[in-house]
């Protein structure tokens, strides 16, 4: 129903839609009933309150229906979430390193960058490490985040389905420039990606120079 940049993002949007639809239903029932009662049983129209017998059936009904609905919500969420916790066998490992207040990335072949580059259609496992306080690695368009907890390594699995540029934000408060701790994810076609990945690796010294020059600008 929804078209996100990953299959998982579309799933999250569908679950969100389901929860919101149910919620709006309940909210409308409660609000409309209340407003109707306030007018219909107003003191002027209805001067004498009537005693209403308590109804066990009614109580059971309005416990049972919400319980069934929330169990469905729980199940959908769990199923979808477990899907992104399984590490695919062919996933490449990339290290995400957070420090106050920037992210940097280390690729399996030794390459490093300040922008996360990934190839479309490939599986990735990101290892999340912080060198100081807690941060959180959040890709809003992918509907995904995981904390960089001090003293341990968390992970996140993803599979980009579209090329493009996406924002990465820190979403765990980490001090002065927390709100500046943005980074970018750039998804390339596989051949472009491989070209980028191997660029500078063979002639290592040159690439360090160019990165340094780029940073100075």
């Amino acid at each position: 129903m929804f078209n996100g940049p990953t299959q998982y993002a579309s799933d999250v949007d569908s679950i969100m839609f389901f929860i919101i639809a149910v919620s709006v239903g309940f909210l409308v029932i409660v609000t409309v009933a209340m407003i109707y009662f306030i007018f219909r049983y107003n003191k002027k129209r209805h001067p004498q309150a009537r005693d209403v017998k308590e109804s066990a059936i009614l109580e059971v009904v309005w416990i049972a229906i919400p319980t069934i609905l929330v169990l469905f919500m729980f199940y959908f969420g769990l199923q979808s979430f477990y899907g992104i916790r399984e590490i695919p066998a062919d996933a490449s490992n990339i290290k995400v390193i957070g420090r106050m207040w920037q992210f940097s990335y280390a690729y399996p072949n030794g390459k490093k960058s300040d922008t996360l580059f990934l190839a479309k259609g490939k599986n990735y496992k990101l290892d999340l490490i912080t060198t100081d306080v807690n941060h959180s690695f959040f890709i809003p368009a992918y509907r995904i985040k995981e904390d960089l907890s001090a003293g341990k390594t968390n992970y996140m699995v993803l599979k980009p389905a579209e090329t493009g540029e996406f924002d990465i934000a820190c979403s765990e408060y980490c001090g002065l420039n927390h709100s500046k701790m943005y980074s970018k994810l750039i998804v390339l076609e596989e051949n472009q990606y491989n070209e980028w990945l191997n660029q500078g690796i063979n002639k290592n010294t040159d690439s360090t120079k160019t990165t340094n020059a780029a940073e100075k600008k």
Partner: peptide, 15 residues
């Protein structure tokens, strides 16, 4: 409910 659900909470957590 959105925050109790694992899939949607992961997205809106800390926002």
């Amino acid at each position: 409910l959105v925050l109790g659900n694992l899939a949607t909470d992961i997205h809106v957590h800390g926002t």
